[in-house]
């Protein structure tokens, strides 16, 4: 069944406490190569049958209006994936 994947990230200018905590822990566990971490969210919206343009448009709308908080988050990707 195909599904629509929506990815939401904290806005670049906004503090990301989750990413910050992970970034500061990584070196202690021996992972030295990463200078920053940002943590976002991935949503998988399943569709019965084919993903129509309308379904994709609805997913985009849902992503902007409900799955993300436009004050602090950006929708960075809405795409179709085969499950």
């Amino acid at each position: 069944m195909p599904r629509i994947v929506v990815e939401v990230m904290p806005k670049p200018e906004i503090l990301d406490p989750q990413g910050k905590a992970i970034a500061s822990a990584l070196p202690h566990l021996g992972f030295q190569d990463f200078s920053a971490v940002r943590q976002g969210k991935r949503f998988e919206l399943s569709v019965d049958g084919e993903v129509t343009d309308e379904a994709l448009a609805q997913a985009r709308k849902a992503a902007e209006e409900m799955l993300s908080n436009p004050v602090i988050e950006d929708v960075v990707d809405v795409r179709v994936e085969d499950a």
Partner: peptide, 14 residues
């Protein structure tokens, strides 16, 4: 511990 931002306890165990 560590804010539990990743998963509760996930970083602390190390």
């Amino acid at each position: 511990s560590y804010g539990d931002y990743l998963r509760a306890g996930a970083i602390s165990r190390f």
